[in-house]
Amino acid sequence: MSAPRNPFKAALRKGDFQLGLWVALGSAYAAEIAGGSGYDWLLIDGEHGPSDMPLIGAQLGALRGRSTHAIVRPPMGEAWLLKQLLDLGAQTFLIPMVETAEQARALVRAVRYPPAGIRGVGAGLGRASDFNRVPDYLTTANEEICLIVQIESRAGLAALDEIASVEGVDGLFIGPSDLAADMGYLGQPSAAPVQEAIRDAFVRIHRHGKARGIMTVALDQAHEYRAMGADFMAIGTDVNCLVSAIDGLRRSFLGVPVSGEQKGGAY
């Protein structure tokens, strides 16, 4: 009996587009609801919002057995934190603010057992091995781990080719909002220079045979990113979906028009 198969990683290898949604409320109940909506993957966000280790674990549990795949974004790519998340059952990671190939290589080692990495041998205590009920977990786990690194600064773009060349990095995810801020366009991820940088990054990532990921809460922008070649993409968050539905219900009943400020939003 082997480690659970990672359907997200398998789909990326086949070239199948994967559609996702951000889960940032920190609620296992909300994650469970989103898990029934048909998305290929949900991103449990530990970088922004209230999710700590127990809350992330609860959300992973709520999505266990669902057809949608759970991706975890920790606050930072620290080995000790990844060790705990791995034992909680996370198989796919989105690591923020990666700017060097050295960082990427360290992350690859952090999510793999020796001799390929430095992951501690203790999964028998956690969900990852079904609490030690998967006899071949230790020898099969490495192959099912998927590592996505997030490029969201000019330094990251400058080192993109070196980062994409690192063996064990399965994909590169462009963070439009932080990239825009670093480029001098705070709150303007749709600015022309930012979009051109994203387009160029996608071309370079594809050249290295790695998957290209991105996120937006604007559907017109989502279609543009898909046309650029995005292989996996999130098209919203549980937070903005909740706000939109709650605010929209009230406005609809009262007949209040939607202003330009209320329609938009950056991430």
Results as ranks from 00 to 15, higher is better:
Met1Ser: 05
Met1Gln: 05
Ala3His: 06
Pro4Val: 13
Pro7Thr: 15
Ala10Thr: 13
Asp16Tyr: 07
Gly20Tyr: 07
Trp22Glu: 06
Ser27Cys: 04
Tyr29Arg: 04
Ala34Cys: 13
Gly38Ala: 10
Asp40Glu: 10
Leu42Asn: 01
Leu43Ser: 04
Leu43Gln: 09
Glu47Gln: 14
Pro50Thr: 12
Gly57Phe: 08
Gly57Gln: 12
Leu60Asp: 04
Leu63Ser: 11
Thr68Gly: 04
Pro75Arg: 03
Met76Ser: 10
Met76Val: 14
Trp80Thr: 15
Leu82Ala: 08
Gln84Arg: 15
Leu85Pro: 02
Leu88Cys: 07
Leu88Gly: 08
Leu94Asn: 07
Val98His: 04
Thr100Trp: 03
Ala101Tyr: 03
Gln103Gly: 00
Gln103Lys: 00
Ala104Trp: 06
Ala106Gly: 03
Leu107Trp: 04
Val108Leu: 08
Arg109Leu: 03
Arg109Glu: 13
Ala110Asp: 11
Val111Ala: 05
Pro115Ser: 10
Gly117Ala: 14
Gly126Ala: 07
Ala128Tyr: 13
Phe131Ser: 07
Phe131Gly: 06
Asn132His: 14
Asn132Lys: 11
Glu143Leu: 03
Leu147Lys: 01
Ile148Val: 06
Val149Met: 01
Val149Lys: 00
Glu152Trp: 09
Ala155Cys: 03
Val166Arg: 02
Val166Ile: 11
Gly168Trp: 04
Gly171Glu: 00
Leu172Phe: 08
Phe173Ser: 00
Asp178Arg: 11
Ala180Pro: 02
Ala180Val: 07
Ala181Phe: 06
Val194Trp: 02
Gln195Phe: 05
Ala197Val: 04
Arg199Gly: 09
Ile205Cys: 01
Ile205Asn: 00
Gly209Ser: 07
Lys210Gly: 05
Arg212Val: 06
Ile214Lys: 01
Ile214Arg: 00
Met215Tyr: 02
Met215Ser: 01
Thr216Glu: 01
Leu219Ala: 07
Gln221Ala: 09
Ala222Pro: 08
Ala222Arg: 06
Ala234Thr: 08
Thr237Gly: 08
Asp238Arg: 07
Asn240Asp: 12
Ile246Thr: 15
Gly248Tyr: 10
Arg250Asn: 09
Val256Ala: 13
Val256Gln: 14
Glu261Arg: 13
Glu261Lys: 12
Glu261Trp: 13
Gln262Phe: 11
